[in-house]
């Protein structure tokens, strides 16, 4: 039977992970670490923390950890009003530089939402999209272009709210239990198999999509992340957070609010 990690276990595990994966896991929100590691213990059937620690150090479980730890988005076009803003406000403001960056992409839904908006605007061939993903398995899944049909009604309902000219079926074909995205939409997507503190895109970015990622950080790590992204991105670059996230008070002079209701910022 699987066990859950204690407070001391969590401290030891996050320290080991930070060393191994070169990302500060000790500054994720503690309650999130407790929930997420409990889920990982259960999923990977971990019976002893000592064994788990050894497997982290040898690298045996790091790919599994990178797959299960981050929270995957489960809706295409979550918050449709944001995607409308992207289409009607951000895209017209970008000019010729249509380079997008997902510093911490977890699942297909967020990426495919962007690809569909770009295709609707006939911009697919001009755009370049960079995605940092730590899990090799996630990258392979994303390359296959599949999303589960489990939430298909939610996907379609969100899509309808966008009021696009195209139909949902214009972008996907059904294949058993999956909807498969038109592979032509993926032509300019580049995957970076590392975290965004260690690896960044090799060209100037115009818009960074970082929605609902800092929810899982504590205040210290959020501040560090904002400062780091500010350094990486040039003046005027768009940075999008989740609708219930805000730039921390400490860094509010580094970013300017572009759209209050959708939490879209621009780098100052």
């Amino acid at each position: 039977m699987a066990i859950g990690p204690t407070i001391n276990d969590i401290k030891e595990i996050t320290a080991a992970l930070s060393l191994k994966l070169k990302l500060d896991y000790t500054n994720y929100a503690f309650s999130f670490l407790r929930r997420r590691l409990a889920l990982i213990y259960c999923t990977l059937k971990i019976k002893k923390t000592e064994t788990f620690l050894e497997d982290i150090q040898t690298g045996k479980v790091t790919q599994d950890f990178c797959y299960f730890f981050p929270v995957a988005e489960d809706e295409l076009f979550r918050d449709p009003s944001f995607w409308r803003s992207l289409r009607t406000k951000i895209l017209p403001a970008l000019g010729d530089n249509l380079s997008f960056w997902f510093p911490e992409l977890v699942s297909a839904e967020e990426l495919y939402s962007l690809l569909i908006i770009l295709e609707e605007e006939k911009l697919t061939h001009k755009a370049k999209i960079f995605c940092n993903i730590q899990s090799c398995q996630r990258i392979e899944e994303l390359k296959q272009g599949k999303i589960s049909l489990k939430n298909i009604e939610i996907h379609k309902s969100n899509f309808k709210r966008l009021e696009l000219h195209s139909k949902f079926e214009d972008f996907f074909t059904e294949d058993n239990a999956y909807a498969v995205i038109d592979e032509g939409l993926m032509q300019n997507v580049a995957f970076l198999n590392d975290n965004y503190f260690n690896c960044i895109p090799n060209q100037q970015i115009a818009c960074t999509l970082f929605r609902n990622r800092m929810l899982y950080y504590n205040g210290k790590m959020q501040c560090q992340s904002e400062k780091y992204l500010h350094q990486c991105l040039g003046k005027g670059v768009f940075m999008v957070l989740g609708i219930k996230e805000q730039i921390s008070k400490e860094n509010e002079l580094l970013f300017e609010l572009f759209d209050n209701s959708e939490q879209i910022y621009q780098v100052l």
Binding site: F30, F32, R35, V71, D74, N212, L215, Y216, G242, K244
Partner: peptide, 13 residues
């Protein structure tokens, strides 16, 4: 949270 702050999450339904 223990420090009497709110944390939000998009974890599974």
């Amino acid at each position: 949270e223990i420090d009497a702050t709110i944390s939000l999450s998009t974890e599974e339904v």
